[in-house]
Amino acid sequence: MKIRNGFTLIEVMIAVVIIGILSSIAYPSYIQFVAKGARADGLAGLMDVANRQEQFYLDNRKYTADMTKLGLNADPWVVDNNYYQIDSVVVNNTSFTLTASAKGSQITRDPNCVSITLTDTGIRLPKECWK
């Protein structure tokens, strides 16, 4: 009687199938988690620029569309993770609208939040992206 060492081909194939099933379930959840994390950086960037706009308004009695005047290094400003760029639109120096636009792979990862908006009155659109 021989003693066998190792696995049979059937055992290895069953293990591969199980790993494939588990990864097909886990990967979409992982992608959704990554997209939500990148969106959180975009939202934080919007809030940071809005705070800088309000400080600029207190100092100068007007808003500015030039991000470099807010102390940022570029116009439009790209958030730290490089998945969103933030543009500012100022109307008559008395109101602003900030828009975070998705860049790169974030466009396909998070198609419902490709463009996120914040205004000087606190309007946040689309609402599902701010949750």
Score class of each variant (00 low, 15 high):
131 K>L: 14
27 Y>A: 15
85 Q>F: 05
17 V>P: 08
92 N>W: 06
14 I>K: 05
117 T>I: 13
124 R>M: 12
26 A>Y: 06
67 M>A: 13
69 K>T: 09
6 G>W: 02
116 I>Q: 08
100 A>F: 04
23 S>N: 04
64 T>I: 06
122 G>A: 03
26 A>R: 08
2 K>G: 11
110 D>H: 03
16 V>Y: 05
63 Y>F: 14
127 K>E: 13
64 T>K: 04
41 D>E: 13
108 T>A: 14
118 L>H: 01
102 A>S: 05
31 I>H: 14
16 V>D: 01
45 G>D: 00
66 D>P: 04
131 K>Y: 12
49 V>M: 06
131 K>C: 07
102 A>T: 02
55 Q>H: 11
111 P>H: 03
88 S>F: 00
106 Q>A: 04
83 Y>P: 07
129 C>M: 08
8 T>H: 03
68 T>F: 01
80 D>H: 11
38 A>R: 15
85 Q>V: 10
61 R>C: 10
65 A>G: 12
129 C>D: 05
122 G>E: 04
19 I>Q: 06
21 I>Y: 07
81 N>D: 11
56 F>K: 03
10 I>K: 01
73 N>L: 11
104 G>A: 03
36 K>E: 11
48 D>F: 12
45 G>W: 00
18 I>L: 12
91 V>I: 13
21 I>C: 08
10 I>G: 03
67 M>Y: 07
19 I>F: 11
81 N>V: 12
52 R>P: 03
60 N>T: 05
67 M>T: 09
6 G>F: 03
27 Y>C: 08
41 D>Q: 12
39 R>A: 01
38 A>K: 15
24 S>Y: 06
70 L>N: 00
35 A>V: 07
32 Q>P: 10
46 L>Y: 04
109 R>W: 10
128 E>T: 15
54 E>N: 13
33 F>T: 14
75 D>L: 01
71 G>P: 04
54 E>L: 11
122 G>N: 02
55 Q>D: 12
20 G>T: 07
127 K>G: 11
82 N>S: 14
24 S>P: 07
52 R>S: 02
97 T>V: 15
46 L>P: 00
100 A>C: 08
68 T>G: 04
84 Y>I: 03
73 N>D: 15
9 L>H: 06
19 I>L: 15
61 R>G: 10
36 K>R: 15
103 K>E: 06
128 E>M: 13
10 I>A: 08
90 V>S: 02
35 A>F: 01
4 R>G: 13
80 D>L: 12
13 M>E: 05
63 Y>V: 06
102 A>V: 05
125 L>E: 14
89 V>G: 09
23 S>E: 04
45 G>K: 01
30 Y>C: 03
117 T>A: 06
105 S>Y: 13
65 A>L: 07
59 D>E: 15
4 R>V: 15
94 T>Q: 15
49 V>W: 01
57 Y>R: 09
65 A>P: 09
20 G>F: 01
8 T>N: 06
131 K>I: 14
57 Y>I: 09
42 G>A: 02
122 G>I: 06
30 Y>W: 07
126 P>K: 02
85 Q>R: 13
110 D>V: 07
10 I>M: 10
33 F>N: 13
45 G>L: 03
38 A>E: 14
54 E>W: 10
44 A>P: 05
36 K>A: 12
61 R>S: 15
76 P>N: 01
129 C>T: 07
20 G>E: 00
34 V>C: 04
24 S>C: 09
52 R>A: 10
98 L>P: 00
103 K>R: 13
106 Q>M: 03
26 A>W: 09
31 I>N: 14
116 I>S: 00
